[in-house]
Design a protein around this nucleic acid. Structure first.
Length: 218
DNA sequence: TGCCAGGCCCTCTTTAGGGCCTT
């Protein structure tokens, strides 16, 4: 099962304050490589403030002819169906994922599964596995890891692609420290486990994890 | 037209406050 890396561009910082999505991308990662991608602008009718237009390059004019949010969310939910999810600063994208899915699929089972989807967060994982990084902003980590250029920052597909490459580095680093063959051996459940380990005690948690694997293997 | 959130993490903490990270 691939992992889907999600990135939203939005009109603001919180759906609770009326912000809506302006663009979404999903990049599928499987067995250590990128295997698929989805991207679409989103028309909601909500005004994009000048600060956000400048930040993302997504203007009100560009969104006038974009497909409606319900159509885009149904497409991306179908594209990522069953995939566990990852995002950079996942609390942000999770909030929009839930809000837009509920609006698009009100009352049906698709919305329920989207609302219940668990996200792994590359910020939390990076803080634990790369504590020596200057900071954990996506652009800083892309430069620090020398990740492949994916195009204009703050566009959904570019940021989702960079996050996917960051995810592969995180999986590789974890695989090396656990003695696994490669990034494909690190599944989403383990990522969700690692992101809850205390930042100051990752080495101890890794040692405990290795010991528990040996114990369960007999 | 236009204001500005919220979860995570650390510490000079836990009956709190401030910085980081996303748009």
């Amino acid at each position: 099962m691939p992992i889907a890396v999600i990135d939203f561009e939005t009109t603001g910082s919180s759906p609770g304050q009326g912000a809506r999505a302006t663009e979404i991308a999903a990049v599928l990662v499987d067995d250590g490589r990128i295997v698929g991608q989805y991207q679409s602008l989103i028309h909601t009718g909500v005004w994009v403030p000048p600060f956000i237009e400048q930040l993302t390059g997504i203007s009100n004019a560009m969104l006038a002819d974009a497909p409606p949010a319900a159509q885009v969310m149904r497409e991306v939910l179908a594209f990522t169906a069953g995939c566990p999810l990852v995002a950079h600063n996942a609390a942000f994208d999770r909030a929009f994922w839930r809000a837009e899915a509920l609006l698009a699929c009100e009352g049906d089972a698709t919305a329920t599964s989207a609302v219940d989807a668990s996200f792994a967060c590359t910020v939390r994982l990076s803080r634990r596995l790369f504590p020596q990084a200057p900071n954990h902003r996506l652009g800083t980590l892309a430069a620090w890891h020398r990740l492949p250029d994916a195009g204009r920052a703050h566009r959904a597909l570019a940021d989702a692609t960079v996050t996917a490459h960051l995810l592969l580095r995180l999986q590789q680093a974890l695989a090396e420290r656990l003695g696994h063959a490669g990034p494909g051996a690190i599944d989403h459940a383990l990522l969700c486990q690692v992101q809850t380990w205390p930042v100051a005690a990752v080495d101890k948690a890794l040692a405990r994890h290795i010991q528990s694997c040996r114990t369960s293997a007999g």
